[in-house]
Design a protein around this nucleic acid. Structure first.
Lengths: 253, 253
DNA sequence: AAGTGGTCTAGACCACCTA
DNA sequence: AGGTGGTCTAGACCACTTT
C-alpha cells in the first residue's frame, strides 16, 4: 500500500459524486497512471476507496465507457483503451453554430417554384416522373459572403402546408434546431466530396472546380413517405469537420 | 383511463428491464403516440405502470436521451424531440470496416524514407526546419483497386521504435483497432474535401481533379509531443459518410 | 471458490418548475 | 405546495471469468 492520494469526493454539492469520480479516473489515465491495456480497480474496490455506493461507481464507469476511454469485460475487469481512429465521430455542431449565429449569418431565398419530377427526384421522393414537386433554392451568407448553397425538393401537397412553413426564411434554422415541424419523423444524411459546377461557383461567388462538401438530406414523415430531399453545397475552403480520439481532457491543470 | 395496452416488462431474462422499457417507449414514439414536443409520462408514473424501480426507469430514459430521441427538463418533464440535423454524427465505422476486411483489402507500402522537415512538417511535429523526420507512404488496395493513399510523417527517434512498429504492414489497421501502441495518447482528426493532384491521381489509378476526401490525423504521446502527422486521400467516388437523425427504429414490425 | 461486471430494488433527499 | 427530474444509498442476485 502506498501513500493514499488526497483525491476524494467532495460532498459539498459542488459536482455530482459520479462526475467527480469519473474526472479523477480520467485524470489518472491522462497522467499515465493507468496506461492503455491496464486494468482499473474493481468497482467494489472503488466503492471502498471513495466511500460511494456501487451505483455511483457504475455511473462513473458508464461515463468513461461513453467517452470511449475504457472498455469493460464481464467477470474480468475494466480496461483502459488505446486510442483508435474508430472512436472518432464527426458532429454537425460546428456546422450548426454557423446557422444559429444570426448576427453574421443570413439566409436568402433565391428561388421557389413548382417543377416536374425527373427520374432522380421521383425516385427519392417516391413520386412518378412528371409529378409536381417544389424546388426551393437558398443561399447562406456569412459576413456578406455566400458560403453555402442549398437546393431542396419538397413533395407537392397543398394540404400539408409544408411549403408555407418551409418557405419561411427561418426554415433552414428549423431543420437544425428541430422546432415546429411535427410532421417530420426521421432523416438520412450523407456527406461526400464534390467539385463546384459553374452554376454553383457563380452562386457561391468563387471559381468552378473548387473542392466542396455535398451534404445530402432526405426526410420522411410518420407515414414513411419521403417529404424533402435536398443538398447543401459548402465551400470546401470554409468548412472542415474535426474531432479527437483517445483520452484527451481539455485544460484542467 | 383507456384500455391498458398489453405492453409489459418480461422478467424471463429475455432482455434487461430497462432495455425493454426503452424499446416500448421508442415504439410508442415511433408510432406517433407521442409526437414531437409531447410529454412522456413522469418517471414515477412509469414506475407504477410497469412495476419497476425508479433507477430502472431512469436508465431507460437515459437510453432515449443518449439516442437523442427525447430531452428532459428538470422539474417539468421528459419531452419528445423533433428530428434535427444537429443530432447527426458521422462515424468512422464504415471507413474502418474496409480496413478490417483483410480478404479484400491489402495495404502496400510504397515508400519509407528519412526526409528533412519543411515548414509545415516542422510546425505540425514541433520540430525545427531541416530536422530529420520519417515519411511513409502507403496504398490501400480494395479488390485490386487502389482507393486510399496514405502519407504519414513520423518524428525521427530511434529509441522509441515507432518506426519499426509503424513500418509493419498491419500498422494501419492498428491505428484503427487501437492495438499495441501504448505510446500514443490522443489524436486530432479532420476531414475536408479536396481535389486529386496529378501524383495522387496516378497512385489511385484515376484522373486528376477528381473530388476526394482528405482525412488528416495528428497523434500525440504522453508527453504532449506530436508523434505522427498524416493524411488519407480517399477517392470521393468510393467513400461517403452517412448517418440518420430523428427516431428511426430499424425494422421491428 | 472467489472476484468481477450487469442488473435491479425500494426507498431517500434535493433542486427545480408549475400552478 | 405538489410534481418532476437528478442524485444517491446499501444492499441483493446473476452470469461470467479467473484462479
Amino acid at each position: 500500500m502506498q501513500k493514499e492520494r488526497n483525491l476524494s469526493i467532495e460532498r459539498t454539492g459542488a459536482a455530482p459524486a459520479y462526475f467527480q469520480l469519473a474526472a479523477i479516473l480520467k485524470e489518472q489515465i491522462e497522467k499515465g497512471v493507468y496506461l492503455p491495456g491496464a486494468k482499473l480497480p474493481s468497482e467494489s474496490g472503488l466503492c471502498r476507496k471513495f466511500h460511494v455506493s456501487p451505483m455511483t461507481v457504475r455511473r462513473s464507469i458508464q461515463l468513461l465507457l461513453d467517452e470511449g476511454i475504457v472498455s469493460t469485460i464481464r467477470g474480468s475487469g475494466t480496461y483502459v483503451k488505446a486510442p483508435d481512429l474508430r472512436g472518432g465521430t464527426f458532429a454537425m455542431e460546428e456546422f450548426y453554430t454557423i446557422f444559429s449565429d444570426k448576427a453574421r449569418t443570413k439566409v436568402k431565398v433565391i428561388d421557389a417554384q413548382i417543377c416536374r419530377a425527373d427520374a432522380a427526384i421521383a425516385d427519392k421522393l417516391a413520386l412518378n416522373e412528371g409529378d409536381r414537386a417544389i424546388l426551393i433554392q437558398r443561399l447562406l451568407i456569412r459576413d456578406g459572403d455566400p458560403i453555402i448553397y442549398h437546393q431542396e425538393y419538397l413533395i407537392y401537397d397543398p394540404e400539408l402546408r409544408i411549403v408555407e412553413s418551409e418557405l419561411e426564411v427561418t426554415a433552414l434554422q428549423g431543420l437544425f434546431i428541430g422546432q415546429s415541424e411535427t410532421t417530420l419523423k426521421w432523416g438520412k444524411l450523407s456527406i461526400e466530396p464534390a467539385l463546384l459546377s459553374g452554376e454553383e461557383a457563380r452562386l457561391l461567388n468563387t471559381t468552378p472546380m473548387q473542392a466542396a462538401f455535398r451534404l445530402e438530406h432526405l426526410f420522411f414523415d410518420y407515414n414513411g413517405q419521403p417529404v424533402s430531399w435536398g443538398r447543401f453545397i459548402c465551400r470546401g475552403d470554409r468548412f472542415r469537420f474535426t474531432t479527437t480520439v483517445g483520452h484527451y481532457t481539455p485544460a484542467t491543470p
